[in-house]
Write a protein that binds this DNA or RNA. Sequence first.
DNA 1: TGTTAGCACTCCACACATTCGAGTGCTAAT
DNA 2: ATTAGCACTCGAATGTGTGGAGTGCTAACA
Lengths: 343, 343
Amino acid sequence: MEELDERKTKILKAVIRNYLDTGEPVGSRTISKYTDLNLSSATIRNEMSDLEDLGYIVSPHTSAGRIPTDKGYRFYVDNLMMEKDREVSDMKEFVIEHTEKMEAVLKQVVKLLANNTNYATMITAPNAAHGKLKFIQLSAVDEEHILAVIVLDRNVIKNKMIAVMEKPDEEIMLKLNLLLNTHLNGMSLDQINLAVITRMKEQAGEYAGIVEGVLNAIAEAIGEDEDLEIYTSGATNIFKYPELSDSRKASELILALEEKTSLADLVTAETDDENDIQVYIGSESPVSTMKDCSVVTASYDLGDGMKGTIGIIGPKRMDYENVYDNLKTLKKQLDDIFRKDDT
Amino acid sequence: MEELDERKTKILKAVIRNYLDTGEPVGSRTISKYTDLNLSSATIRNEMSDLEDLGYIVSPHTSAGRIPTDKGYRFYVDNLMMEKDREVSDMKEFVIEHTEKMEAVLKQVVKLLANNTNYATMITAPNAAHGKLKFIQLSAVDEEHILAVIVLDRNVIKNKMIAVMEKPDEEIMLKLNLLLNTHLNGMSLDQINLAVITRMKEQAGEYAGIVEGVLNAIAEAIGEDEDLEIYTSGATNIFKYPELSDSRKASELILALEEKTSLADLVTAETDDENDIQVYIGSESPVSTMKDCSVVTASYDLGDGMKGTIGIIGPKRMDYENVYDNLKTLKKQLDDIFRKDDT
DNA sequence: TGTTAGCACTCCACACATTCGAGTGCTAAT
DNA sequence: ATTAGCACTCGAATGTGTGGAGTGCTAACA
């Protein structure tokens, strides 16, 4: 047995659509005019009363219209939201101009998305933890410092200064460089096990200390991504929605966007949607400060376990279709950008 | 002739002090009790009336107390604010833990300052434009890319990928490295003139193209600092002050802190204070969105024309003494941190 | 002449009452 | 099953009254 017959579904849809537009509770009369099924307000009232009993809508007080509950939104997102093949403006052209650094690309993307959607947005870099080592270069910078430059897959570059007691001479440096590159080239971090390490140290002889320093540097450099960098944009967009802009809520939300620590919970959550797009409505969100919001995240995938997440944070009455499409498109384009331009 | 006699000064001071504390208009009776000069409220009233005529205070409506005008605050800051030698908690110990990267230090500092003061804060990195080249390393990363690592004074590190047609062989790379380092070592950017460049290109022979690439990379890498990086923290602190937290003002301010472009106007302004501390009250600020705020900036100086700025943004009724002292101390400590730890 | 007490006045903030309209639930008629 | 009609409810908007804080002015005082 279906919980909702066709008519109820239509009415629920109409209620939600209308509420998404206006942000105001919607009454039976309004619906009676909106829909094509010609019914009087009274009939609608009865149906709405049923819908309320079923938990899809609720009236904020005795004599106001109805607004969707989290369950209502959920039903809408799961069943009612039809994927129009709408035009989502192509971001690639804006973004690719000069993709010098991944960081710059990401910043541009969140900003663009925030402007397009009028919601707050966030993005994480693809985590390099599974990236492979491509190249290592040690250089003696001055008397007491060796600079380790570590290049990962996709030309992600990490620098690390290593303090030493005394500057090793040219020849040693060459040897160490050779040693490091031959042993580590093409390896991913989790492939560097004790066996590899001891073998290298043996060969390094008295300079095992430096090798150890470099290995630490590698671990640390890659590890930096563990407390992953998150970029946000459009935080002030939340002021566009009255239901979020009273100072308590706004403050909490903006703080969350500024601190970014709680956002990590959003981006690390597992996705199960076929499209890797995840919709959290209200209290479904893992972050409690966002219980008055909806959060939509998409993860983009670069292969090799390198994944990043992009997300949108807005009011529950969010334009889900638009957001969904935007993210889907963006996801594809990010894949393209990072795969092709091997920046 | 002095515009304000001693008694008026005292009263003005009392009014402002009180307003800084409470944020509410202060009346004559309150003052009559506060001050040591034993005067009745009536007398105070007369004096306050005078002060209002002179433009130091104003009453928001007929029968409220008085609040300071911008002129009043200005007078307070210039003349009344005595420098108590108060304890400002030492930040160094917190900061120095692990000063791997300047970026990390700066982020920590703004955060700390925001927590200490309960205002929004910002900081810019010392601009490296006048920094000297310390070390350059070219490495062939793969068939089509050469990585240029550029180390500046104070071990600021820049990376740059240079695309090439074909990979130069080992020997060439060594030569180029030697060439670059001998010619450029210790030079500052503005010392690299056409003469130097042509001489280098001559010596590079058929690889002049790569040399040019590196020079461009240097220029670009250093130039990145021109659109200077600004870090902010504690934006949500503004919600702690009712006079700033209505959604229009809050939105504008937070947007400014998020976008950071307008902040540049604040940090680039010339300082003329002996301590390099600049106080902008209300409309004195070069940024119009901050006309309801006060902004206090301090620039720290690392020599060699390397300067950075740190600033605080808060309500006009800011605890100027505290902020002033905090900045003064911090300024010194930043100098120390960056001078000693040559990180 | 400077200071003070007293007083009328103003205006805001707050509490309270009133109205108005949108929307509901229920009942009875179709 | 649908609908018209009606009583009812509640919130938003608006109006009214009161109290208090603060002022400006005047007259008395040292």
